[in-house]
Design a binder for these strands. Structure first.
Ligand SMILES: [Mn+2]
Ligand SMILES: [Mn+2]
Ligand SMILES: [Zn+2]
Ligand SMILES: [Zn+2]
Lengths: 134, 134
DNA sequence: CTCTGTAATTAGACTAAGTCTAAACTTGTA
DNA sequence: TACAAGTTTAGACTTAGTCTAATTACAGAG
């Protein structure tokens, strides 16, 4: 097993690996918490030597989403969350704590919709709601 | 077939049918467009004799959601949509136009997830993305 | 090695969605 | 008619996100 390297990943996806982009990507690769932009800003700014502005966090998240390095996840009104897991998967929201967990596509039954021919489905997202122990 | 009456519906759900609540409910019952709070405000304020403030729109939407008269629908970052269809259903987002369509629960295969026993699923929502003709 | 153009970062102004507050209005009941 | 409780209101406020204009970083050319 080899570590995922943020810088290599950015290069592979055609994104110039600036220090700010690298630390944001490293942070997202290191967590499964689906953090918001504000959480990313707090975490990366306080923990790392590089300077980081709010505008750069938003610019970087947009750049990373467009390059396919991360994905935006919307589970609740008001703010987006970000996820370095770009494999085909869905989400589980613990309605007590707000925590968001990954649900691999393989562990759910594929969703088939019988819609009239006007609809052309490109994809779908499933969000589960419930509670999780621990 | 008998018309759905907003005032009766509110009474049945235990919500005092004030003029503002009635017109907002009538508007939501009359459309399938899944409008945002701002769209509701514009539409109801311009088309109806009753006065209506922004705070009342938000207050009323919260009241109606809590009473089960309507549901909040989150399909995109940034704003919520509201839906007088409270039957068990899912949504289809036309990624070209942004329009949101209802998908009855019966026309999709039920989603079964095989998760470890820590997860207790209370429900799920499916959002389809694609395009729709017309 | 320096020059120079382009891309990236920045602070902070700005916007848009939503919340809150305190005062005024409405309504059901006594 | 008087009151209390509930509702509506304008507008201040908050928060997430965008935009702008200035600065900084840096790769390639000379
Ligand atoms: Mn913060
Ligand atoms: Mn408007
Ligand atoms: Zn995820
Ligand atoms: Zn709907």
């Amino acid at each position: 097993m080899h570590e995922i390297n943020a810088e290599e990943l950015l290069l592979k996806k055609g994104v110039k690996p600036t220090p700010q982009r690298v630390v944001i990507t490293e942070y997202l690769l290191s967590t499964h918490s689906h953090p918001t932009a504000d959480e990313i800003l707090d975490e990366v700014k306080n923990a790392l030597p590089v300077s980081l502005s709010r505008a750069t966090v938003y610019n970087t998240l947009k750049t990373l989403v467009e390059a396919g390095v991360i994905q935006e996840v919307v589970t609740e009104p008001g703010r987006s969350r970000y996820d370095a897991n770009v494999s085909d998967h869905h989400h589980f929201v613990d309605t007590k704590t707000g925590a968001v967990f990954d649900i691999p596509a393989e562990v759910i039954t594929p969703v088939k919709a019988t819609l009239d021919e006007r609809y052309k489905i490109d994809g779908y997202k499933v969000v589960f709601f419930g509670t999780r122990q621990d």
